[in-house]
C-alpha cells in the first residue's frame, strides 16, 4: 500500500471536498477525479456523499453506481455477484467479431455459458451475434448462485425491450457445475464459453504486491466467484466432450491452468486443437480449443 502524500490530499481538497475520501480507494488523483465525475453524473445530488463514503471504504465503484458498461450493454451489478472485467469484455468482443467474419451459416448456433454470473457474456454474445448480425442463437447460461441467476435474469429483462427475441433465445437457470449431467439438457452445444473462478487459494490470501487480490475485490466481491484452480476446468472439459461441442473458450489466470486444459481435452477426445490467448496487458487470459476440420478452424487466428 502506497501512502498518499499530504500534498496530493490538499490538492484534491481544493478541487472538491468529496475528492480526498476517494483517494483512499483509488490512490491516484486523476482516477479519483474521474470517479467523482462519474458519481456526479450517474447519481442524484443527495446520494453523492453516501456514494463517496462507500467508495472510500473500498467498495467497488460498480456496486456503488449499480452497473458496469460491457461492450455496448450496461450490465447491472449487485453484491454477491462478480463484476464483469474488461478482459472478459475484450475476448468476448473479439470472439463475436471473428464468428461474424468466418461463420457464414447463420441458421443455428448453440452456446453454453457456464458460471455466467451477471450474464454478461451471454448477453453480449446475443447482442453482437443475434441483434447486430442475423444469427439464430440459443444461449443457455447457468450459475450455482441464486443471486447471480436472479441478477442475470434482471439484466436480460433490462435489455429485452430493445431486442427481438423471436428466433433467438437467452435463458438463465440455477445449476451446479459439479452436479451437471447431460440429462439436464438432452441437447448438444456448438460452443462452450466460461469465466469460472480461477484464483488459487494461495493467491487469494497473499498481498497485492505478490500477485495477490486487490483489497476492494477481497472485501466486497464473493469468494465463491473467485477461488478455484483445476476443478472447474476438469468439469468444463467434461461438459465440452459430453455435449458434443465443437469449440470452447475458457478464461483463466495462469499458464498451469491452460496446460491442464490442453492435457485434459487431448486425453479425453481426439482431434482437438488448442491455443492460448493473452490479453492486451500481455497476461495469459484464455484457452481456446476446437475440433479439427470444422468451421471453427478460424480460431487458430484468435
Amino acid at each position: 500500500m502506497t501512502r498518499i502524500s499530504s500534498k496530493v490530499i490538499r490538492e484534491a481538497y481544493k478541487v472538491s471536498k468529496l475528492l480526498p475520501p476517494l483517494l483512499r480507494a483509488t490512490k491516484n488523483l486523476d482516477l479519483a477525479k474521474c470517479e467523482l465525475q462519474w458519481i456526479k453524473r450517474e447519481l442524484p445530488k443527495n446520494k453523492w456523499t453516501e456514494a463517496v463514503i462507500r467508495r472510500s471504504n473500498y467498495e467497488p465503484l460498480q456496486y456503488v453506481l449499480g452497473s458496469q458498461p460491457f461492450g455496448s450493454l450496461d450490465i447491472l451489478c449487485r453484491r454477491n455477484v462478480l463484476i464483469p472485467r474488461w478482459e472478459t469484455e475484450e475476448w468476448v468482443t473479439r470472439l463475436s467479431d471473428m464468428i461474424r467474419q468466418h461463420i457464414k451459416d447463420t441458421t443455428q448456433l448453440k452456446i453454453l455459458d457456464a458460471c455466467t454470473g451477471t450474464g454478461c457474456i451471454s448477453l453480449l454474445l446475443h447482442q453482437k451475434l443475434s441483434e447486430e448480425a442475423k444469427y439464430k442463437t440459443d444461449i443457455l447460461g447457468f450459475d450455482v448462485s441464486y443471486d447471480a441467476v436472479t441478477l442475470a435474469n434482471d439484466n436480460l429483462n433490462k435489455n429485452e425491450p430493445s431486442w427481438s427475441l423471436e428466433k433467438s433465445s437467452v435463458t438463465f437457470r440455477k445449476s451446479n457445475i459439479f452436479h451437471w449431467s447431460l440429462n439436464d439438457t438432452a441437447e448438444s452445444f456448438d460452443l462452450i464459453v466460461s469465466n469460472p473462478p480461477y484464483i488459487t487459494r494461495e493467491e487469494y490470501s497473499s498481498p497485492v504486491t505478490l500477485e495477490g487480490v486487490a483489497r476492494s475485490v477481497k472485501l466486497y466481491e464473493p469468494s465463491l466467484a473467485l477461488i478455484g484452480q483445476y476443478e472447474f476446468y476438469e468439469k468444463l472439459v467434461d461438459i465440452t466432450v459430453s455435449t458434443n461441442a465443437k469449440a470452447f473458450i475458457f478464461e483463466l489466470g495462469s499458464n498451469d491452468q491452460a496446460t491442464y486444459v490442453e492435457k485434459q481435452i487431448n486425453s479425453l477426445a481426439a482431434g482437438w486443437k488448442t491455443k492460448m490467448y493473452s490479453d492486451t496487458a500481455d497476461k495469459i487470459r484464455c484457452v481456446l480449443g476446437w475440433k479439427k476440420d470444422t468451421v471453427w478452424d478460424f480460431l487458430v487466428k484468435f
Binding site: 482516477l31 474521474c34 470517479e35 462519474w38 467497488p60 465503484l61 460498480q62 462478480l82 463484476i83 472485467r85 474488461w86 478482459e87 473462478p197 480461477y198 484464483i199 493467491e203 497485492v208 500477485e211 495477490g212 487480490v213 486487490a214 476492494s216 475485490v217 466481491e221 466467484a225 473467485l226 478464461e251 489466470g253 490479453d279 496487458a281 497476461k283 487470459r285
Partner: peptide
C-alpha cells in the same frame, strides 16, 4: 502493471 483478470477490478477505460 500489476494483477489483472478477476484479481483486480478496474473502473477506468
Amino acid at each position: 502493471r500489476g494483477p489483472g483478470g478477476q484479481k483486480i477490478n478496474k473502473t477506468n477505460s
